[in-house]
Structures are given as structure tokens and as C-alpha cells.
């Protein structure tokens, strides 16, 4: 984590593109640039800037946006109010898609219906979430006019907020769900051909009950690992989807800041996402160990 923060910072700070120049525009006088650089603390040595930044983060102070002069914590907070629920909803949609699709296409892998499920699955993986989002806008929003095609009115009206998030979440979740569905399928196929499932059936369990009682947990272990990775995929996907649906979330904020060279905001968000990825992976690791006694012993 610490190493991650150093990388983010160094890469952003050392490489060219002086924020002060960008902020003030091309007509800025050198003295004005110097003054602003001073004010923003950009004249200090890099390590000093880094220490300030990290110190700020640790104490819960994310710094001040170069552009708006607002504390970043506030901006980020309101952005997360959109992004957080979006990711959560996307994950839900993803699971609803992945589990039935994967189990069905594995159990029926030798019949036509299973093959159809598999093909649908492949197509689901091939359509990127933002493309699906645009298509959903065209069909559901523009042609059918069922749901809003973009924008977000805030949580003061929860129903409307959920309506705004529904399409983006579906776009996000279906694609991630298709990817996870493939893993579910593989895991179920592994279990179906396992010796212990055969033992379970030799004991007298019917195929369905054997799969439920002995299969599910064994499927869960490998699927959970990819789910962790896919959660990271969801966060990244959310950044893009927000731009498709013009939702005022973290992704929109991030891209605005890139355009404006608002370094501190970019740094904070990039680090936040990287942190989420690392934390999720760590959490998955822990759950993984608690689910699988074999790994637990190795530790």
C-alpha cells in the first residue's frame, strides 16, 4: 500500500505538465505561475510534497483541489454516494446473472440448452459494459422511454435515484456477471467430475442433492477468488459507466480532474481505487482461508 502511494505520487509529480501553467492558461505570466506554484506547495521538494500528502491522507485530510479550492474529501464523498451504490447494485446484478448462468451451462453442458447458455455467456463477455450501457440507453431510454438515460438527482428522492442507477447497474453487472459465470461454470464442471461427488452419489444421494450438499462450497472457493478480482473490475467499470450515463460519481470527477490537471484529486482517486483493489484482494484471501481448511493449515 505504501509502495503504491509512492508510485502514484512520483509518477504524477515528476512527469511533465506543470499544474500551475494549466490552471492559469497559456497567457499566464511567469510570476503568476510561480506565485500559484508557491501557494499550492509545489515548490517544495518532491519528498516533502509526498509527506504532506500522505500525512494528510492518514489524518483524514485529502488535500484541497487545485482548481476549485474545495476540500477534496467533500467532493469525493458526494461522488462516492453515487459510485458506491452503483458498484453494489452492479455486484448484485452480476451475481444474479453469474450463478444461474454458470450452474445451468455446466450441468447441461452436454445438451443443446447448455450450449445456448454458453454461447450467450460468451457474447455477454464480448460486449463491453459501456457499449451495453449505450445500447440500453438507446433501447430502454430513447426508444421505450422507460428509465432515465442519464443524470442523477440525488438521494433526496430515493426512488428516482434508484431509477437512475438501475440501467448503469445492469450494464455493469451483466458483463461482470458473464465473466464470473464462466468461472462458475468451470468450477461446477470440476465438481461434477470430482471423485468426492461420485462418493456422495455412491452413498445414495441423488445427483441434485449431491451437488447441493457437496458441490456448492467447493464451487464457492474458486469463484470467490475471481469475485474479488471482478469487484475491482466493477469499480473500474463504474468509472466508465458513470461517463456514459453522466452520473456525478467518482469516475466523472476523475476524468474532469484529468482534463483540468487537478493533480491532487487524480492522485487521491487513483490511490483510492488501488487501495480498494488491494483491500478487496486481501479480504478475499482471508475469506478463502476460512472456507478452505487445507489452506488454513498451510499457513
Amino acid at each position: 500500500m505504501a509502495a503504491a502511494s509512492v508510485i502514484v505520487f512520483v509518477v504524477l509529480a515528476i512527469l511533465p505538465g506543470k499544474p500551475a501553467e494549466v490552471i492559469l492558461g497559456t497567457q499566464a505570466t511567469p510570476s503568476a505561475v510561480r506565485e500559484l506554484t508557491d501557494k499550492l506547495g509545489l515548490d517544495k521538494p518532491i519528498w516533502r510534497q509526498y509527506v504532506d500528502w500522505v500525512g494528510g491522507i492518514v489524518s483524514g485530510h485529502l488535500g484541497t483541489s487545485y482548481i476549485s479550492g474545495q476540500p477534496i474529501a467533500g467532493e469525493l464523498g458526494s461522488a462516492l454516494e453515487v459510485t458506491g451504490p452503483l458498484v453494489g447494485l452492479g455486484l448484485l446484478v452480476g451475481l444474479v446473472v453469474a450463478v444461474p448462468l454458470g450452474v445451468f451451462s455446466a450441468v447441461k453442458s452436454r445438451s443443446a440448452s447448455g450450449v445456448v447458455a454458453s454461447v450467450l455467456n460468451q457474447i455477454g463477455i464480448a460486449v463491453p459494459s459501456f457499449v451495453l450501457g449505450i445500447l440500453l440507453i438507446v433501447v430502454v431510454g430513447v426508444e421505450l422511454r422507460l428509465l432515465p438515460t442519464g443524470g442523477f438527482t440525488g438521494w433526496s428522492d430515493p426512488t428516482e435515484a434508484m431509477r437512475s442507477l438501475l440501467l448503469p447497474a445492469v450494464a455493469l453487472g451483466v458483463v461482470e456477471g458473464a465473466i464470473v459465470g464462466r468461472y462458475v461454470r468451470t468450477a461446477v464442471l470440476d465438481v461434477l467430475s470430482s471423485d468426492y461427488l461420485r462418493t456422495a452419489r455412491a452413498k445414495g444421494l441423488t445427483p441434485g442433492r449431491a451437488l447441493v450438499r457437496h458441490g456448492l462450497r467447493n464451487v464457492a472457493v474458486p469463484v470467490l477468488t475471481v469475485l474479488g478480482l471482478e469487484l475491482a473490475g466493477l469499480v473500474v467499470g463504474a468509472v466508465i459507466i458513470e461517463n456514459v450515463f453522466t452520473l456525478p460519481g467518482m469516475g466523472t470527477l476523475l476524468l474532469q480532474s484529468v482534463e483540468n490537471r487537478d493533480l491532487i484529486v487524480v492522485e487521491d482517486i487513483v490511490l483510492l481505487v488501488a487501495a480498494v483493489v488491494l483491500v478487496v484482494n486481501f479480504a478475499v484471501d482471508i475469506v478463502y482461508h476460512s472456507l478452505d481448511p487445507r489452506i488454513a493449515r498451510e499457513r
Partner: peptide
């Protein structure tokens, strides 16, 4: 592992900020 924590999008964002 560390590099893995930075999805392509983030790297692109960082690079785009610079270049």
C-alpha cells in the same frame, strides 16, 4: 502484485494527466 492493483484505466488516467 503491486502493478496488478492498478487497472489499465488508472494507468491511462495517470499517463493522460501527464502526457
Amino acid at each position: 502484485d503491486l502493478v496488478y492493483a492498478f487497472p489499465a484505466l488508472l494507468v491511462a488516467v495517470v499517463l493522460a494527466t501527464d502526457f
